[in-house]
Computed example of a mutant assay.
Amino acid sequence: MKRIIVVAAMLALSAGAVVADQNQVKQTQAQMKETGKNAGAIAAMLKGEKPYDQATVDAALARFEDTAKKLPTLFPESSKGIKLEGDYSTSPKIWEDKAGFEQHIASYAKAVADTKGRVKDIDTLKAEMPPLFKQCGGCHETYRLKKG
């Protein structure tokens, strides 16, 4: 009887951990989708599809800064291998090359900090955003996998 209770308790704890890990993955996906949405708004301005809007730029840079602060905690070891929704999944390289991943995070955070406060018009947007977007793309190329 004691074994059954112990096994049941272990299964319940294990199930709770899986739910917590899936919740972490959903939070990570939501954070990254919102960051991508803001990047898209900036890209539309850079392409001339939308007029320059300082409030949109400021909101996007604030989101990028928030993401930079959260990135170190968004991909815990416990989330490795969890199935993701959407077209992309995390690469195992996030955990296999933790130092490289952390270096990308630091580079992204620096690019955000370097950009924040410098963008005042479309010309400074065109000058300042490519290095920041390059940081995003570099991490995605290495640590994100396209499904299919």
Score class of each variant (00 low, 15 high):
Phe133His: 08
Ala127Asp: 10
Tyr108Pro: 09
Asp66Thr: 14
Asp58Lys: 11
Gly81Asn: 10
Phe101Trp: 10
Tyr88Thr: 12
Gln22Trp: 07
Gln29Phe: 01
Gly137Tyr: 03
Glu141Val: 00
Lys83Leu: 00
Ala15Cys: 11
Ile122Phe: 05
Ile5Asp: 06
Leu11Cys: 13
Ala43Lys: 14
Thr35Ser: 11
Gly100Phe: 02
Lys33Gln: 15
Asp97Thr: 05
Ala111Tyr: 03
Val112Ile: 09
Leu46Lys: 06
Gly40His: 07
Val25Phe: 03
Ser89Met: 11
Leu74Cys: 00
Ile5Ala: 14
Met129Tyr: 07
Gly40Gln: 12
Thr73Met: 10
Lys120Gln: 13
Lys26Phe: 06
Asp66Ser: 14
Leu13Ile: 12
Lys146Tyr: 04
Tyr88Ala: 06
Met129Asp: 08
Gln135Ala: 15
Thr115Gly: 04
Glu49His: 07
Leu13Arg: 00
Lys93Gly: 07
Pro131Ile: 05
Val112Asn: 06
Leu74Glu: 03
His140Val: 14
Leu145Gly: 00
Lys110Gly: 07
Lys50Trp: 04
Gly117Asn: 07
Lys120Leu: 01
Trp95Val: 06
Gln29Met: 12
Lys83Thr: 15
Gly48His: 02
Ile94Gln: 05
Leu132Asp: 07
Thr115His: 02
Gly48Ser: 03
Phe133Leu: 12
Gln29Ala: 10
Gly100Leu: 02
Leu13Phe: 10
Lys80Asp: 11
Ile122Pro: 09
Lys26Asp: 10
Pro130Lys: 06
Ala99Glu: 09
Val57Gln: 11
Lys70Ala: 15
Arg63Thr: 15
Phe64Tyr: 12
Asp114Ile: 09
Glu96Cys: 04
Asp121Gln: 04
Arg144Val: 13
Lys80Ile: 07
Ala111Gln: 05
Ala99Phe: 01
Ala109Met: 07
Leu61Glu: 05
Thr28Pro: 02
Gly100Glu: 00
Thr73Ile: 01
Glu34Gly: 11
Asp121Ala: 05
Thr28Met: 12
Gly100Pro: 03
Arg144Phe: 01
Ala20Gln: 08
Gly117Met: 07
Leu11His: 03
Leu61Asn: 08
Leu46Ser: 05
Lys70Glu: 08
